[in-house]
Amino acid sequence: MGTSTLAPGPVGEAERPAPAAPGPYETKRGKLRPARERAFWPFLLPALLGYTVLFVLPALYGFWVSLNKWAGPGSDMEWKGLANYTALLENDAFRTSFVNTFVLALGGGVAVFGFTFLSMVVLRQAKGRGFIRSVVFLPMIISLIAVGAAIGFLLNPNGAVNTVFGWLGLDPQPWLGPDMVFRCVIGGLVWSSTGFYVALMMSAADSIPPYLYEDAKLIGATRWEQFRYITLPLTWDVFAVCAVLWVVNSLKVFEIVIAFTTAGTPGSPPLQARTVAVQQFLSVTNNGGAPDLGSAAAMGVFVLIVTTVLVWLTRRITRRERVELS
Protein backbone atom coordinates (compact mmCIF):
# COMPACT_ATOMS: atom_id res chain seq x y z
CA MET A 1 0.00 0.00 0.00
CA GLY A 2 3.03 2.19 0.25
CA THR A 3 3.00 2.52 -3.51
CA SER A 4 -0.15 4.57 -3.53
CA THR A 5 0.51 8.19 -4.30
CA LEU A 6 -2.47 9.18 -2.25
CA ALA A 7 -1.87 6.99 0.72
CA PRO A 8 -2.18 9.07 3.86
CA GLY A 9 -1.99 7.65 7.38
CA PRO A 10 -4.46 5.02 8.33
CA VAL A 11 -6.56 7.35 10.48
CA GLY A 12 -7.10 10.04 7.94
CA GLU A 13 -7.72 7.48 5.32
CA ALA A 14 -10.81 6.12 6.95
CA GLU A 15 -12.48 9.47 7.02
CA ARG A 16 -11.55 10.63 3.60
CA PRO A 17 -14.52 10.63 1.19
CA ALA A 18 -14.20 8.62 -1.97
CA PRO A 19 -12.92 10.60 -4.91
CA ALA A 20 -15.47 11.31 -7.57
CA ALA A 21 -13.46 9.59 -10.26
CA PRO A 22 -10.41 7.36 -10.06
CA GLY A 23 -7.21 9.11 -10.91
CA PRO A 24 -4.73 7.30 -13.10
CA TYR A 25 -2.22 6.66 -10.31
CA GLU A 26 -4.47 5.36 -7.57
CA THR A 27 -4.27 1.76 -6.51
CA LYS A 28 -7.47 -0.23 -6.36
CA ARG A 29 -7.35 -0.53 -2.63
CA GLY A 30 -6.66 3.03 -1.88
CA LYS A 31 -9.62 4.48 -3.63
CA LEU A 32 -12.15 2.10 -2.16
CA ARG A 33 -11.06 2.03 1.39
CA PRO A 34 -13.51 4.55 2.88
CA ALA A 35 -16.86 2.88 2.18
CA ARG A 36 -15.61 -0.58 2.88
CA GLU A 37 -13.62 0.35 5.90
CA ARG A 38 -16.54 2.15 7.46
CA ALA A 39 -18.40 -1.14 7.33
CA PHE A 40 -15.52 -3.01 8.97
CA TRP A 41 -16.66 -3.01 12.58
CA PRO A 42 -20.44 -3.06 12.04
CA PHE A 43 -20.10 -6.08 9.74
CA LEU A 44 -17.60 -7.85 11.91
CA LEU A 45 -18.81 -7.19 15.44
CA PRO A 46 -21.90 -9.43 15.70
CA ALA A 47 -19.94 -12.51 14.69
CA LEU A 48 -16.86 -11.46 16.63
CA LEU A 49 -18.78 -10.78 19.84
CA GLY A 50 -20.85 -13.95 19.68
CA TYR A 51 -17.78 -16.03 18.97
CA THR A 52 -15.67 -14.42 21.69
CA VAL A 53 -18.30 -14.32 24.43
CA LEU A 54 -19.91 -17.69 23.84
CA PHE A 55 -17.02 -19.75 22.54
CA VAL A 56 -13.60 -18.33 23.41
CA LEU A 57 -14.47 -17.13 26.92
CA PRO A 58 -16.19 -20.44 27.80
CA ALA A 59 -13.06 -22.23 26.57
CA LEU A 60 -10.97 -20.07 28.93
CA TYR A 61 -13.48 -20.68 31.69
CA GLY A 62 -13.13 -24.42 31.01
CA PHE A 63 -9.43 -24.00 31.64
CA TRP A 64 -10.21 -22.35 34.97
CA VAL A 65 -12.58 -25.18 35.94
CA SER A 66 -9.86 -27.68 35.13
CA LEU A 67 -7.77 -26.28 37.98
CA ASN A 68 -10.48 -27.03 40.52
CA LYS A 69 -12.46 -29.85 41.98
CA TRP A 70 -16.08 -29.14 41.23
CA ALA A 71 -19.35 -31.04 40.97
CA GLY A 72 -21.20 -28.32 39.09
CA PRO A 73 -23.17 -25.13 39.74
CA GLY A 74 -24.54 -25.03 43.25
CA SER A 75 -21.65 -26.92 44.78
CA ASP A 76 -18.39 -25.51 46.06
CA MET A 77 -15.23 -25.26 44.03
CA GLU A 78 -12.04 -26.42 45.60
CA TRP A 79 -8.70 -25.22 44.21
CA LYS A 80 -6.55 -28.10 43.06
CA GLY A 81 -3.96 -26.46 40.83
CA LEU A 82 -2.57 -28.95 38.38
CA ALA A 83 -3.71 -31.96 40.42
CA ASN A 84 -6.46 -32.83 37.92
CA TYR A 85 -3.84 -33.02 35.19
CA THR A 86 -1.35 -35.15 37.08
CA ALA A 87 -4.16 -37.46 38.18
CA LEU A 88 -5.21 -37.90 34.56
CA LEU A 89 -1.67 -38.72 33.50
CA GLU A 90 -1.61 -41.53 36.03
CA ASN A 91 -5.11 -42.75 35.21
CA ASP A 92 -5.02 -45.87 33.04
CA ALA A 93 -8.49 -45.35 31.62
CA PHE A 94 -7.65 -41.84 30.48
CA ARG A 95 -4.27 -42.87 29.07
CA THR A 96 -5.96 -45.61 27.06
CA SER A 97 -8.57 -43.21 25.73
CA PHE A 98 -5.83 -40.75 24.87
CA VAL A 99 -3.81 -43.33 22.97
CA ASN A 100 -6.99 -44.49 21.22
CA THR A 101 -7.77 -40.97 20.09
CA PHE A 102 -4.25 -40.64 18.77
CA VAL A 103 -4.42 -43.96 16.93
CA LEU A 104 -7.72 -42.92 15.46
CA ALA A 105 -6.38 -39.59 14.24
CA LEU A 106 -3.23 -41.11 12.70
CA GLY A 107 -4.46 -44.51 11.51
CA GLY A 108 -7.76 -43.13 10.31
CA GLY A 109 -5.96 -40.25 8.63
CA VAL A 110 -3.64 -42.55 6.70
CA ALA A 111 -6.61 -44.62 5.56
CA VAL A 112 -8.77 -41.62 4.65
CA PHE A 113 -6.11 -39.91 2.59
CA GLY A 114 -4.81 -43.18 1.15
CA PHE A 115 -8.26 -43.86 -0.28
CA THR A 116 -8.66 -40.25 -1.29
CA PHE A 117 -5.40 -40.25 -3.27
CA LEU A 118 -6.19 -43.57 -4.93
CA SER A 119 -9.62 -42.26 -5.91
CA MET A 120 -7.96 -39.22 -7.41
CA VAL A 121 -5.83 -41.40 -9.68
CA VAL A 122 -8.88 -42.74 -11.46
CA LEU A 123 -11.74 -40.36 -10.74
CA ARG A 124 -10.56 -37.75 -13.20
CA GLN A 125 -11.52 -39.89 -16.18
CA ALA A 126 -13.56 -42.83 -14.89
CA LYS A 127 -16.98 -43.49 -16.37
CA GLY A 128 -19.74 -42.24 -14.12
CA ARG A 129 -17.30 -40.18 -12.05
CA GLY A 130 -19.91 -37.59 -11.11
CA PHE A 131 -22.16 -40.32 -9.85
CA ILE A 132 -19.35 -41.98 -7.87
CA ARG A 133 -18.41 -38.70 -6.27
CA SER A 134 -21.98 -38.04 -5.21
CA VAL A 135 -22.51 -41.48 -3.74
CA VAL A 136 -19.25 -41.73 -1.79
CA PHE A 137 -20.11 -38.36 -0.24
CA LEU A 138 -23.46 -39.72 0.89
CA PRO A 139 -22.43 -41.21 4.28
CA MET A 140 -21.18 -37.78 5.30
CA ILE A 141 -24.73 -36.47 5.48
CA ILE A 142 -26.06 -39.34 7.55
CA SER A 143 -26.16 -39.07 11.33
CA LEU A 144 -23.49 -41.26 12.92
CA ILE A 145 -26.04 -42.48 15.44
CA ALA A 146 -28.09 -43.88 12.57
CA VAL A 147 -24.96 -45.34 10.98
CA GLY A 148 -23.96 -47.04 14.23
CA ALA A 149 -27.44 -48.45 14.80
CA ALA A 150 -27.68 -49.89 11.30
CA ILE A 151 -24.13 -51.23 11.12
CA GLY A 152 -24.36 -52.76 14.59
CA PHE A 153 -26.85 -55.21 13.11
CA LEU A 154 -24.57 -56.12 10.26
CA LEU A 155 -21.69 -56.83 12.67
CA ASN A 156 -23.44 -59.03 15.24
CA PRO A 157 -21.79 -62.51 15.55
CA ASN A 158 -24.57 -64.08 13.48
CA GLY A 159 -25.28 -60.89 11.55
CA ALA A 160 -25.02 -60.11 7.87
CA VAL A 161 -21.25 -59.54 7.64
CA ASN A 162 -20.45 -62.90 9.17
CA THR A 163 -23.07 -64.51 6.95
CA VAL A 164 -21.23 -63.13 3.93
CA PHE A 165 -17.94 -64.30 5.46
CA GLY A 166 -19.47 -67.76 5.72
CA TRP A 167 -20.33 -67.77 1.99
CA LEU A 168 -16.75 -66.83 1.21
CA GLY A 169 -15.46 -69.61 3.42
CA LEU A 170 -13.97 -67.23 6.00
CA ASP A 171 -14.21 -67.56 9.76
CA PRO A 172 -16.80 -65.37 11.47
CA GLN A 173 -15.24 -62.59 13.53
CA PRO A 174 -16.29 -61.06 16.87
CA TRP A 175 -16.58 -57.59 15.32
CA LEU A 176 -18.24 -55.88 18.26
CA GLY A 177 -16.06 -57.58 20.88
CA PRO A 178 -13.82 -55.37 22.98
CA ASP A 179 -10.72 -56.11 20.89
CA MET A 180 -12.16 -55.45 17.48
CA VAL A 181 -14.85 -52.87 18.01
CA PHE A 182 -12.45 -49.95 17.93
CA ARG A 183 -11.14 -51.06 14.55
CA CYS A 184 -14.75 -51.19 13.39
CA VAL A 185 -15.26 -47.67 14.74
CA ILE A 186 -12.24 -46.43 12.78
CA GLY A 187 -13.48 -48.28 9.72
CA GLY A 188 -16.92 -46.74 10.07
CA LEU A 189 -15.40 -43.31 10.47
CA VAL A 190 -13.12 -43.72 7.44
CA TRP A 191 -16.08 -44.96 5.44
CA SER A 192 -18.28 -42.04 6.43
CA SER A 193 -15.74 -39.23 6.06
CA THR A 194 -13.57 -40.19 3.09
CA GLY A 195 -16.22 -39.03 0.63
CA PHE A 196 -15.99 -35.52 2.04
CA TYR A 197 -12.27 -35.31 1.37
CA VAL A 198 -12.62 -36.96 -2.04
CA ALA A 199 -15.16 -34.29 -2.93
CA LEU A 200 -12.86 -31.49 -1.74
CA MET A 201 -9.73 -32.79 -3.42
CA MET A 202 -11.52 -33.63 -6.65
CA SER A 203 -13.05 -30.23 -7.08
CA ALA A 204 -9.55 -28.81 -6.63
CA ALA A 205 -8.26 -31.26 -9.23
CA ASP A 206 -11.03 -30.23 -11.61
CA SER A 207 -9.50 -26.81 -11.98
CA ILE A 208 -6.22 -28.19 -13.33
CA PRO A 209 -6.08 -27.46 -17.06
CA PRO A 210 -6.40 -30.65 -19.16
CA TYR A 211 -3.48 -29.81 -21.46
CA LEU A 212 -1.06 -30.73 -18.67
CA TYR A 213 -2.35 -34.28 -18.68
CA GLU A 214 -2.27 -34.45 -22.45
CA ASP A 215 1.36 -33.39 -22.47
CA ALA A 216 2.12 -35.95 -19.78
CA LYS A 217 0.50 -38.70 -21.79
CA LEU A 218 2.62 -37.81 -24.78
CA ILE A 219 5.80 -38.32 -22.85
CA GLY A 220 4.47 -41.64 -21.60
CA ALA A 221 3.52 -40.91 -18.01
CA THR A 222 1.33 -43.57 -16.40
CA ARG A 223 -1.83 -42.54 -14.63
CA TRP A 224 -0.13 -43.02 -11.30
CA GLU A 225 2.69 -40.73 -12.46
CA GLN A 226 0.18 -38.18 -13.73
CA PHE A 227 -1.33 -38.14 -10.25
CA ARG A 228 2.02 -38.12 -8.53
CA TYR A 229 3.61 -35.32 -10.59
CA ILE A 230 0.64 -33.21 -11.68
CA THR A 231 -2.52 -33.68 -9.61
CA LEU A 232 -0.95 -33.98 -6.18
CA PRO A 233 1.44 -31.00 -6.38
CA LEU A 234 -1.29 -28.76 -7.79
CA THR A 235 -3.82 -29.71 -5.12
CA TRP A 236 -1.34 -29.74 -2.26
CA ASP A 237 -2.75 -26.55 -0.72
CA VAL A 238 -6.19 -28.06 -0.47
CA PHE A 239 -4.69 -31.22 0.95
CA ALA A 240 -2.96 -29.21 3.66
CA VAL A 241 -6.29 -27.74 4.72
CA CYS A 242 -8.01 -31.14 4.50
CA ALA A 243 -5.37 -32.68 6.74
CA VAL A 244 -5.95 -30.02 9.37
CA LEU A 245 -9.72 -30.49 9.15
CA TRP A 246 -9.29 -34.23 9.60
CA VAL A 247 -7.04 -33.82 12.64
CA VAL A 248 -9.46 -31.40 14.27
CA ASN A 249 -12.52 -33.55 13.58
CA SER A 250 -10.97 -36.88 14.47
CA LEU A 251 -10.08 -35.65 17.95
CA LYS A 252 -13.75 -34.97 18.65
CA VAL A 253 -15.05 -38.43 17.77
CA PHE A 254 -17.85 -39.32 20.12
CA GLU A 255 -21.21 -40.42 18.71
CA ILE A 256 -19.96 -43.28 16.59
CA VAL A 257 -18.25 -44.95 19.55
CA ILE A 258 -21.44 -44.79 21.60
CA ALA A 259 -23.48 -46.06 18.66
CA PHE A 260 -21.17 -49.04 18.07
CA THR A 261 -20.87 -50.05 21.72
CA THR A 262 -23.43 -49.28 24.41
CA ALA A 263 -25.95 -47.46 22.21
CA GLY A 264 -29.10 -46.89 24.24
CA THR A 265 -28.05 -48.81 27.36
CA PRO A 266 -26.64 -47.04 30.40
CA GLY A 267 -23.39 -49.02 30.27
CA SER A 268 -19.91 -47.74 29.57
CA PRO A 269 -18.03 -48.61 26.36
CA PRO A 270 -15.09 -51.00 26.81
CA LEU A 271 -11.78 -49.30 27.62
CA GLN A 272 -10.34 -50.46 24.30
CA ALA A 273 -12.85 -48.35 22.41
CA ARG A 274 -13.05 -45.16 24.46
CA THR A 275 -11.89 -41.89 22.99
CA VAL A 276 -11.15 -38.86 25.14
CA ALA A 277 -14.53 -37.38 24.24
CA VAL A 278 -16.25 -40.53 25.47
CA GLN A 279 -14.16 -40.65 28.63
CA GLN A 280 -15.06 -37.04 29.28
CA PHE A 281 -18.75 -37.63 28.67
CA LEU A 282 -18.61 -40.45 31.23
CA SER A 283 -17.14 -38.21 33.88
CA VAL A 284 -19.59 -35.37 33.19
CA THR A 285 -22.75 -37.43 33.33
CA ASN A 286 -22.01 -40.59 35.26
CA ASN A 287 -25.64 -41.53 35.13
CA GLY A 288 -26.73 -39.60 38.19
CA GLY A 289 -23.46 -39.59 40.08
CA ALA A 290 -21.38 -36.75 41.42
CA PRO A 291 -19.84 -35.38 38.25
CA ASP A 292 -16.16 -34.53 38.34
CA LEU A 293 -16.24 -31.43 36.16
CA GLY A 294 -12.70 -30.32 36.98
CA SER A 295 -11.24 -33.54 35.67
CA ALA A 296 -13.54 -33.49 32.65
CA ALA A 297 -12.47 -29.95 31.82
CA ALA A 298 -8.82 -30.99 32.16
CA MET A 299 -9.43 -33.66 29.53
CA GLY A 300 -10.76 -30.93 27.26
CA VAL A 301 -7.61 -28.89 27.77
CA PHE A 302 -5.47 -31.95 27.01
CA VAL A 303 -7.32 -32.39 23.74
CA LEU A 304 -6.85 -28.72 22.93
CA ILE A 305 -3.10 -29.05 23.48
CA VAL A 306 -2.92 -32.17 21.34
CA THR A 307 -5.01 -30.51 18.65
CA THR A 308 -2.73 -27.52 18.60
CA VAL A 309 0.39 -29.66 18.40
CA LEU A 310 -1.03 -31.90 15.70
CA VAL A 311 -2.34 -28.98 13.66
CA TRP A 312 1.06 -27.33 13.90
CA LEU A 313 2.79 -30.58 12.88
CA THR A 314 0.39 -31.10 10.01
CA ARG A 315 1.05 -27.61 8.76
CA ARG A 316 4.79 -28.16 9.07
CA ILE A 317 4.67 -31.40 7.16
CA THR A 318 2.38 -30.11 4.43
CA ARG A 319 4.18 -26.80 4.08
CA ARG A 320 6.03 -26.48 0.83
CA GLU A 321 6.51 -23.98 -1.90
CA ARG A 322 3.22 -23.40 -3.56
CA VAL A 323 3.23 -24.73 -7.10
CA GLU A 324 1.56 -22.31 -9.44
CA LEU A 325 0.92 -22.49 -13.11
CA SER A 326 2.46 -19.64 -14.90
Partner: peptide
Protein backbone atom coordinates in the same frame (compact mmCIF):
# COMPACT_ATOMS: atom_id res chain seq x y z
CA UNK B 1 -11.98 -21.70 16.84
CA UNK B 2 -11.93 -24.69 14.50
CA UNK B 3 -9.23 -26.26 16.59
CA UNK B 4 -10.96 -25.75 19.93
CA UNK B 5 -12.49 -29.15 20.57
CA UNK B 6 -16.09 -29.22 21.74
CA UNK B 7 -14.85 -31.07 24.83
CA UNK B 8 -13.18 -27.91 26.09
CA UNK B 9 -16.41 -25.94 26.11
CA UNK B 10 -18.87 -28.63 27.13
CA UNK B 11 -18.59 -27.90 30.85
CA UNK B 12 -18.95 -24.11 30.53
CA UNK B 13 -21.87 -24.61 28.16
CA UNK B 14 -23.70 -26.73 30.72
CA UNK B 15 -22.99 -24.08 33.36
CA UNK B 16 -24.15 -21.25 31.12
Amino acid sequence: GMSIPLQTVVIPIVVI
